[in-house]
Design a protein around this nucleic acid. Structure first.
Lengths: 395, 395
DNA sequence: GTGTCGGCCGTCTGCCGACAA
DNA sequence: TTGTCGGCAGACGGCCGACAC
């Protein structure tokens, strides 16, 4: 996966203006993957709309007009992906340039298994710690977990008393942060002292937020932050009404689909409930090569608070359109599910096929409750009906 | 002009959740006026687009589709206006709910001269000071100009030595700020000491920003801020691409025009180069009751750095569409002008008719260079052609 | 009339090990 | 192993009049 990762695309491709891809992915989380440049993807305006709804903190108005000409999913070529981080908040997001394929291009589409878009592997030498009250207080510094310090910080010279060194770390904007790393106290522990409070106040970190350090192959120390899910962080955007924003994304997609021209979207992995630009191969495999039915058990990956991954189990309770009026025949969140461990609506009651792993793999014969076998593709993508899906070499 | 001015519209109309209209207007500046609720206005998507371009710091893409069905101006009823201020930055903006009039309504339209939308008068007991390096430094407090202190602060008890009192001021969010006001030093001067630095750091004020104090009729002390025009303050909005935002506002207006339904816009007076929701009467007067021609001299109001008003003079150098491709036959910025005092493109090279005062008032006979007399209204508003404009009692 | 400074005092920052969970 | 605290020293915040423009 090769990504152009420049913050400032107008500047020449200098090393200094580039966002570190490793750090971006670490901040985005272990489940976030970006499709490769040039690959084919499926774009869901419906999912994009969800992201806008979350960002503006306002559901889409029921009075909103429908874009009948806009299908629920667009097969696109991904022309560009750039990784960004908000200057104010360090929130990570990606900008993607998409171009809907015309009927002819859709027929000729081919893809490699590599385009499945596996979740990005997290760096090996990194650690992520949720800040305590002491870490963020002005009274002291940062207490470094012992294993973390030994894994990602350069080794201390223990002949000194106390052992100490200066660490220089760079954040997503390539800003430099200096910390005094010292091993002292009784019992001995690793601490960051001088420089730490400057960082905390500059990034406006509070207890509950997380910091993550990476020691990469180039022997550079990288430093990222992940804020706790504070409710109501978002502003209602004094630029454009949320209704107009919803209309805007629909209009942009509809215009691009009608003229097969490029359009630009922002994907904010920490704000979006689900990815809405999916590798085409992943979509095809999930929708056409997997049989799911009501009652079937499945697993799904979730991110833990410690930035690692765990599986939750659930049962499929229904298969239907999540928004039959606005988005009929859409595969977006078409699966209603119940979770084995349900903690007060913490997990979505609806998921998409490509998000889950069915536990019992059916061979390729009709299942008792087939999922829309008669209409494998919504009408808007009928050109796909002629595709020999079984020839694609997937699954 | 009566305005609903609640920040939180979902809460009951309690006094506490209401933005102070006087303070909002003081922060917005002396030239900003909001049309009255219920009145008829003309909405210019073109001007709205300018505001989005400025806010996203990106010009509209030349590849953007045209909305042929959307006229350059929409005559609307203004159903609601609410005043707001950004929670983070205190930037003032207004939310307006507009409903395009249908052909029948446009024929029956009537309006009062009061709807001309005179610029809001600034409060009498107020002062505005641009902060100096000393004012914002941590080393000391705020030096209050003598006339200002005497005009807007409650009188001190000069029998005390030194004379001092506690001032309590409320900002746009109705937050309370306490300051120690003292009259001391050699020579004697008014100072705000205790409490001032908390305010400066909370609002993140820097030298060059301005603060303004108002002493209103209810004997309340109000406190607002106006930031210096820092270049590049705006972020490129990680929510939606600027192209989609432009499309969104056009789609929202086009949909509302097609269905005569309400839509919502945000007007940010400090960001917008010009007002894009104009009282209908003001528009009619400027476009139909004023003769302008190339070579004519005019005056136009501008805001000074000290938050007062001054007139600049100029000469009309041409009359033409500012964007003949996208917005043909639009009155938005149809007047090309040259300024007597031109300071490096500080003032717009194009203005709209309702922004200027022609110096030589022509009587109502055809001028040597009439402005589009054959097409007083663009085709999209042809229903107005039957109006007896001369009966409206204006000018 | 007011912007900036030196002087001075008090509060808070921030580094230390103690201690307990 | 690590979160929080008391102790302490030094830095900075912040109030004062002096002084100059």
């Amino acid at each position: 996966m090769k990504l152009s990762a420049c913050l400032n695309q107008q500047s020449p491709e200098g090393e200094k203006s580039c966002l570190n891809s490793e750090l971006w992915h670490a901040c985005a989380g272990p489940l976030v993957s970006l499709p490769s440049i040039g690959s084919h993807v499926v774009y869901f305006p419906q999912g994009h709309s969800e992201q806008v709804a979350v960002s503006t903190n306002k559901e889409v108005d029921a009075q909103m007009p429908n874009y009948q000409s806009l299908p629920a999913q667009l097969v696109c070529q991904l022309h560009n992906v750039t990784m960004h981080a908000d200057i104010e908040t360090d929130e990570v997001y990606a900008q993607m340039t998409l171009q809907p394929l015309n009927a002819q291009e859709q027929k000729e589409v081919s893809f490699l298994p590599a385009d499945m878009g596996a979740a990005s592997k997290q760096p090996t030498n990194y650690f992520c710690k949720t800040l305590t009250a002491s870490d963020t207080s002005t009274h002291g510094g940062f207490s470094v977990p012992r294993r973390a310090a030994e894994k990602v910080f350069p080794p201390l010279d223990f002949s000194q008393q106390p052992p100490a060194q200066e660490l220089i770390a760079r954040d997503l904007h390539n800003n430099e942060w200096k910390f005094r790393h010292i091993f002292r106290g009784q019992p001995k522990r690793h601490l960051l002292t001088t420089g730490w409070s400057v960082f905390v106040s500059a990034k406006r970190l509070v207890a509950g937020d997380s910091v993550l350090f990476i020691w990469n192959e180039k022997n550079q120390l990288l430093l990222g932050i992940r804020r706790a899910n504070r409710p109501q962080t978002v502003m209602p955007s004094s630029v454009l009404s949320s209704d107009s924003m919803h209309l805007g994304l629909l209009a942009a997609a509809a215009h691009a689909a009608a003229t097969n021209s490029r359009f630009t979207i922002f994907y904010n992995p920490r704000a979006s409930p689900s990815e809405f630009v999916i590798p085409l191969a992943k979509y095809i495999k999930a929708v056409h090569h997997t049989r799911v039915s009501v009652g079937m058990r499945f697993r799904m990956l979730f991110e833990t608070e410690e930035s690692s991954v765990r599986r939750y189990m659930g049962t499929i309770t229904g298969i239907s359109d999540s928004d039959p009026v606005r988005w009929p025949n859409s595969h977006w969140r078409s699966v209603k599910v119940g979770w084995d461990e349900s903690t007060a609506g913490e997990r979505q009651p609806r998921v998409s096929l490509w998000e889950i792993e069915p536990l019992t793999t059916f061979p390729m014969y009709p299942s008792p409750f087939p999922l829309r076998l008669k209409r494998p593709w919504p009408s808007g993508l009928s050109s796909y009906a002629g595709m020999k899906i079984d020839d694609m070499g997937l699954n």
